[in-house]
Nucleic acid binder design. Structure first.
Ligand SMILES: Nc1ccn([C@H]2C[C@H](O)[C@@H](COP(=O)(O)OP(=O)(O)OP(=O)(O)O)O2)c(=O)n1
Ligand SMILES: [Mg+2]
Ligand SMILES: [Mg+2]
Length: 512
DNA sequence: GCGGATCAC
DNA sequence: TATGGTGATCCGC
């Protein structure tokens, strides 16, 4: 296992990528050194006082702790890889990954045993695992699979929210309550919630031939951690009780919390904080060394107290649209200029399709040594035309190019977005996108194989089909789906694209 | 508002 | 030989 690190190291050493990564790590180390110096300057009194102040915060978090909801996080297993394995049975039992020789999007579990991971270049994957089969991405297929997953989720919470193609959050509290009103024997609420989630996973599996894992807990932060506990093809229930939550978190690695990434976890490790429980013990240091926003986030992680409220969706809107591309590094200004034109063209199309215009246009570039820079321009009027995007970025490119270093990436982003006049906004664009492009020649039900005349008809049929047949397994924590049970009550209609936003951890806290 | 960093997938 | 693309947020200016 230590060999894995060795092989990766050996394959990378000396490359520009590696050098850049090393430099970045040195900066992080330096930051940590400064942080520790500051820490050593603190008097015990300072720390005690900081702890007391932090206690006020935790008390407030405790007071607003909401344990009344059943939040579910569903995450597909090895998603892209699973889709490819489903469609190509010969890949079923071999280590494989999805992507290219230069970049892998994900790998199946057989390949993970060799250390092959998402965001790893394919050529390194092959060094780790010479038999590795790499298949190219096919986003249309993943989108189609995701649509089916979403159709199932909508039956359990019409206001579900997707984070990406392969995962989403649901609040099934009302669904559980409805179920309890019927005949559930002597099942407790908790048991009903787990059974429903088992049934939902079974439905997903039946409809897509793909497995999903799920976590059930009092809030999204915890549910997300839980969905990982019994992966793949499993689920985990965390009782909605304060002691259970605190026990669960005490020894949990901080890195498992969404929002605590590579850098922050290194900083915390330097403070001898590697488990969520230690966040509480070291709250004085957290108070003295991190920004207010980070303090709040870290205390929430320690307590498992995510904000109770669900952010109203109506306010939520896309903040930026961007497109970028990586190529063989070049300093040829004609070539780069042409590329920039194509990117602006592409961005213009994307903006129009979404019915948006941007007032701020940002040029992004990456030098051949992997240094990333961005140059923004704010216009008098929002735009979506390629010409205006180009006019806003071309001078910046010229300026940056005079530095002489070849570039390996160009990108253009539009932000400060406003809805284009007349159009209905992103809503309509999404529908056009889904129905227009997918080009499914026939609307065939994935469950029974019958065909429908239209997408809407098919959708309605799938609902009936799922209802008419066997439901899922109501197993406790873990275990593959497979049982044959009753389906949940019908909830007719197309899955709404209305997405309730469940506050992801570390999102803006706004006003103090 | 800008630019760099960090994070997630 | 060779290390992605999209979107969001936060910090310190
Ligand atoms: N750096 C990454 C991470 C993920 N993905 C894509 C491919 C994954 O299949 C999909 C979902 O990401 P997950 O983190 O959920 O990973 P998987 O679903 O592949 O595996 P797991 O079973 O761990 O969820 O997103 C990607 O393109 N680039
Ligand atoms: Mg997944
Ligand atoms: Mg995921």
């Amino acid at each position: 296992m230590i060999q894995i690190f060795q092989i990766i190291e050996e394959a990378s050493r000396g490359s520009k990528f590696y050098n850049h990564k090393k430099q970045r790590q040195e900066k992080i180390d330096e930051r940590i050194r400064r942080m520790l110096e500051l820490k050593d300057s603190f008097t015990p009194e300072q720390i005690t006082r900081a702890e007391a102040q932090m206690d006020a915060l935790t008390a407030q978090l405790e007071q607003s702790r909401d344990l009344s909801r059943f939040i579910v996080h569903v995450d597909m297993d090895a998603f892209y890889a699973a889709v490819e394995m489903r469609d190509r049975p010969e890949l079923r039992d071999v280590p494989m990954a999805v992507g290219s020789n230069s970049m892998l999007s994900t790998s199946n579990y057989a390949a993970r045993k060799f250390g092959v991971r998402a965001a790893m270049p394919g050529f390194i994957g092959r060094k780790l695992c010479p038999q590795l089969v790499i298949v190219p991405c096919d986003f249309e297929k993943y989108r189609a699979a995701s649509q089916l997953v979403q159709q199932v989720m909508a039956r359990y919470d019409p206001d579900f929210s997707m984070v990406s193609l392969d995962e989403g959050y649901l609040d099934i509290t009302d669904r559980v309550a409805t179920e309890m009103d019927g005949d559930t024997g002597d099942q407790t609420e908790d048991e009903v919630a787990q059974r429903l989630v088992g049934e939902m996973r079974a439905e997903i599996c039946r409809l897509t031939r793909l497995t999903a894992s799920a976590g059930i807990a009092a809030n999204g932060m915890l549910a997300k951690i839980c969905s990982d506990q019994n992966k793949p093809d499993g689920q985990f229930f965390l009782p909605r009780e304060r002691p259970a939550v605190l026990d669960f978190l005490r020894e949990l690695p901080v890195r498992k919390v969404s929002g605590i990434g590579n850098v922050l976890s290194q900083q915390l490790a330097a403070l001898e904080v590697t488990r969520c429980g230690e966040l509480l013990e070291r709250r004085g240091l957290v108070r003295l060394l991190f920004s207010e926003c980070t303090q709040l986030s870290l205390m929430r992680a320690g307590l498992g107290a995510d904000p109770p409220g669900v952010g109203r969706d109506e306010d939520s809107h896309q903040k930026s649209v961007s497109t970028e591309t990586t190529f063989a590094a070049t300093a040829d200004s004609a070539q780069l200029s042409e590329l920039l034109g194509e990117l602006c063209q592409q961005l213009s199309e994307d903006l129009r399709r979404k019915g948006l215009r941007g007032r701020t246009v940002t040029l992004k570039l990456k030098t051949s040594s992997f240094v990333v820079r961005s140059r923004a321009t704010t216009l008098a009027e929002p735009t979506s035309t390629a010409a205006a995007l180009l006019a806003a970025t071309r001078p910046a490119l010229a300026r940056e190019l005079s530095a002489g270093e070849p570039l390996r990436l160009l990108g253009v982003r539009a932000s400060a977005l406003v809805a284009a006049e007349g159009a209905a906004g992103p809503r309509q664009a999404t529908l056009t996108e889904m129905t227009g492009r997918a080009a499914a020649p026939r609307h065939e039900c994935p469950v029974c194989g019958r065909t429908a005349g239209s997408l809407a008809e098919l959708s309605a049929h799938v609902e009936r089909c799922l209802d008419g047949e066997a439901g899922g397994g109501g197993e406790q924590n873990g275990g593959p789906v497979g049982g044959q049970k009753r389906p949940p009550a019908p909830h007719s209609g197309l899955p709404r694209t209305k997405h309730k936003r469940i506050d992801s951890f570390f999102t803006a806290v706004k006003r103090s």
